[in-house]
Structures are given as structure tokens and as C-alpha cells.
């Protein structure tokens, strides 16, 4: 492949040209399904952000819920006749529709924030390890090993015991659990990329190392990263659900989608299907839309697929 070195050097650096960004946006919308995914994703972010203005009930306010309204089927009215529960209620009498929108807010926030932070931390550490190599690399990779084998449950339990419960603690736990994963994935990508011709060429041009790392190597790793991170946003949300299932997640009076599903878990066989079914559907739509967008982004952003 050595005869193509020059071409590789020309196309590898990510160009921050406005026309190219526009082109990418245009290209993104060429795929209908991805466009629909994006629209759904934006709508979900919208309803999550404006949940307090849309929902008939604040499910986190203990004054406004009543166990006498517990486990009502979809379409039932509250016992004082004031509210109709279109998606039913959970065991505490929370309106499922309101709970889902509020829960969406928390799940999205927790999943996206923790994944982005973990991704950034992981990317920087992974790149650094791969480039510096030697002892630093070894130390970092052994810390990564350590972190990867530490069960998420134990991390969450220790944080719970020391710091208590809350959204911020969950995010912290998810970051702690995930960063090492990215670090290792990026490092292995970089090692492969580093020995490619365009990097050799950039070195010959005496470009500073940092520039080679961030503007030449990193963009070439982006497609992999996007694939992994869209999967991982989903798995972060699912992991939060699993922690909730094990009693380590969100405070029970402020359920996330995951906590709603795991609360409804015990009613799966008992006919109160709506307690976990509707949150499940919401989670499914959320994750499918994130992935449709992610898949398309990967195709659009991949410098090598663009010819």
C-alpha cells in the first residue's frame, strides 16, 4: 500500500471547513431512516426538557400522588375523578405518562452525560498511553485492567455507602465504570493507526506530536468510537436500570426509565403489564433513535468512506 502514501496524507487530516460540515449535514439527511431517528431523538430531548410543562402530574411530588390510585389500568380516572391516567399508574399511584417523561429526562441525562465524560476521559488517556508508550502506557493499561474487572455493582455500592444516593453519584459511578473501556478501545485503535503511512508522513513533515495525535490520528479513530459510544450510551442507560434493579440506582421517589422498568419487573407476570411495558417502549424508542443517528453519523464522518 506504500504507493498511496501521498494520497493518504492529503485526506487524513480532518478539515474544519464550513462547506464540508454543511455537506456532512446534507449527507446525513439523505438517509430517511436516520433523519426520522434524529427527529425522534430531538422530540424526546424536547419532551424530556419540558416535561414539567407537558405532564398532568409531577410524579416526584409526594403531595400529588396517592397510593389509593395505585396500579390503575391505562385509561382509568383517579379516585377523585380529577385526572385520567392514559398509561395507567404504578404501585405508588404515579401517573405512568408523567413518570415516563420525567424518567426519560433522568435516563437521557445520566446516559449521555456519563458516556460523554467517560468518552473524553477515556479518549485522552487512551491516546496518551498509545503515544507515549513505555512505562506510562503500562501503568495506565494496568489501571484500566483493574477498573474493567471491578464489578459495577461494587463500585456503585461503595459510592452509595460513602457518598449517599443521587443522580450525581450514579453519573459518577457510570463514568468510573466506563472510562477504562474507552481508554482501552482507543489505545488499540491508535496503535494500529500510528503505524500507518499517513502518520509516518506527518512525522516526516515534522508536525508537532500533539497535532498528529489530535488532528490526524483521532479523526481516523472516530468511526470506531462513534459505533462503540452509541452502543454504550444505550448500555449506560441499561446499566443504570440494572443498578436500580439491584437497589443501587436512583432514589425511588425520583424514578428513571430504568427504575420504572425494574419497579414494574415484579408485576411482569401479574397482569399489571403497563408498569414496566410503557417505560420499556420509551426506552426502546430512545435507544433505537440514538443508534440510528449514531450509525449515520459514523458513515458521514468516516473520512475513509468519503471518496
Amino acid at each position: 500500500m506504500s504507493e498511496h502514501t501521498t494520497e493518504a496524507v492529503v485526506q487524513a487530516p480532518a478539515v474544519q471547513d464550513e462547506s464540508l460540515i454543511l455537506e456532512a449535514v446534507k449527507e446525513f439527511f439523505e438517509n430517511r431512516v436516520a433523519a426520522v431517528g434524529l427527529v425522534i431523538f430531538i422530540i424526546m430531548i424536547g419532551v424530556a426538557l419540558f416535561a414539567p410543562y407537558i405532564t398532568p402530574q409531577n410524579p416526584y411530588d409526594l403531595m400529588s400522588i396517592d397510593i389509593m390510585d395505585g396500579k390503575l389500568a391505562p385509561g382509568s380516572k383517579s379516585f377523585d375523578g380529577s385526572v385520567t391516567y392514559w398509561l395507567g399508574t404504578d404501585s405508588q399511584g404515579r401517573d405512568m405518562f408523567s413518570s415516563i417523561l420525567y424518567g426519560l429526562r433522568i435516563s437521557l441525562g445520566v446516559g449521555v452525560v456519563s458516556t460523554i465524560i467517560a468518552l473524553v476521559i477515556g479518549a485522552v488517556i487512551g491516546l496518551w498511553a498509545a503515544f507515549v508508550g513505555g512505562k506510562t502506557d503500562s501503568v495506565i493499561m494496568r489501571i484500566v485492567d483493574l477498573q474493567l474487572s471491578f464489578p459495577a455493582i461494587l463500585v456503585a455500592l461503595i459510592l452509595l455507602a460513602i457518598l449517599g444516593k443521587g443522580v450525581d453519584k450514579i453519573i459518577l459511578a457510570l463514568i468510573l465504570v466506563q472510562w477504562a473501556y474507552y481508554a482501552r478501545a482507543i489505545r488499540s485503535n491508535v496503535i494500529v493507526e500510528r503505524s500507518k503511512e499517513y502518520v509516518e508522513a506527518a512525522k516526516c513533515l515534522a508536525l508537532p506530536q500533539r497535532r498528529i495525535m489530535f488532528s490526524h490520528v483521532l479523526p481516523n479513530c472516530t468511526p470506531e468510537l462513534i459505533v462503540i459510544s452509541t452502543v454504550k450510551v444505550a448500555s449506560a442507560i441499561a446499566l443504570e436500570a440494572t443498578l436500580s434493579f439491584l437497589g443501587l440506582g436512583m432514589p425511588i421517589t425520583e424514578p428513571s426509565l430504568g427504575l420504572l422498568i425494574s419497579n414494574g419487573f415484579k408485576y411482569l407476570q401479574s397482569g399489571y403489564y403497563w408498569i414496566s411495558f410503557y417505560p420499556g417502549v420509551a426506552l426502546l424508542i430512545l435507544i433505537v433513535s440514538i443508534n440510528l443517528v449514531g450509525d449515520r453519523l459514523r458513515d458521514v464522518l468516516n473520512p475513509r468512506l468519503k471518496r
Binding site: 409526594l62 403531595m63 400522588i65 396517592d66 397510593i67 405508588q92 455500592l157 452509595l160 449517599g164 444516593k165 439491584l246 437497589g247 443501587l248 432514589p251 425511588i252 421517589t253
Partner: peptide, 17 residues
């Protein structure tokens, strides 16, 4: 917690393993 809140004792809930 719901019931206590309704008589004026604003109650938060914290459950753990």
C-alpha cells in the same frame, strides 16, 4: 412518606441495600 407529607411532615425517602 406520602402519608406523612400529607399531614405536613415533608418526608424524603432514602432506601438502600
Amino acid at each position: 412518606a406520602q402519608m406523612l407529607t400529607k399531614v405536613g411532615i415533608k418526608t424524603e425517602v432514602n432506601t438502600m441495600p
